[in-house]
């Protein structure tokens, strides 16, 4: 359904943690605060930026995501606070 521009517009934002490896998305909101928020900003997390989920570690371990030229590891409960729209 990502093909249609209309559907894309109304498609709900999902948490980054729900993506499957290989899926790309655009960051629409970052619901974090304090040190975590600062760190995410410094790592390149900004609304509007494209992000790709590269892989997940086993036993519900961390996620590896790619923003631009940077690969980042973060835990699932952190990724839950980052909302994205699949592209």
């Amino acid at each position: 359904m990502g093909e249609s521009p209309f559907l894309y517009r109304i498609m709900p934002a999902v948490a980054l943690s729900t993506l499957v490896p290989g899926e790309s998305a655009t960051i629409v909101a970052i619901h974090t605060e304090g040190p975590l928020h600062q760190r995410l900003l410094a790592m390149g997390f900004r609304t509007g930026k494209p992000i790709e989920l590269i892989r997940r570690a086993r036993f519900s371990g961390p996620l590896q995501v790619r923003i631009g030229t940077t690969d980042i590891l973060l835990r699932g409960n952190e990724a839950e606070k980052i909302m994205v729209k699949k592209t």
Partner: peptide, 11 residues
């Protein structure tokens, strides 16, 4: 642990 677990994965 006060540091958020958001690590860079360098090449």
């Amino acid at each position: 642990n006060s540091e958020p677990f958001v690590l860079e994965l360098p090449p």
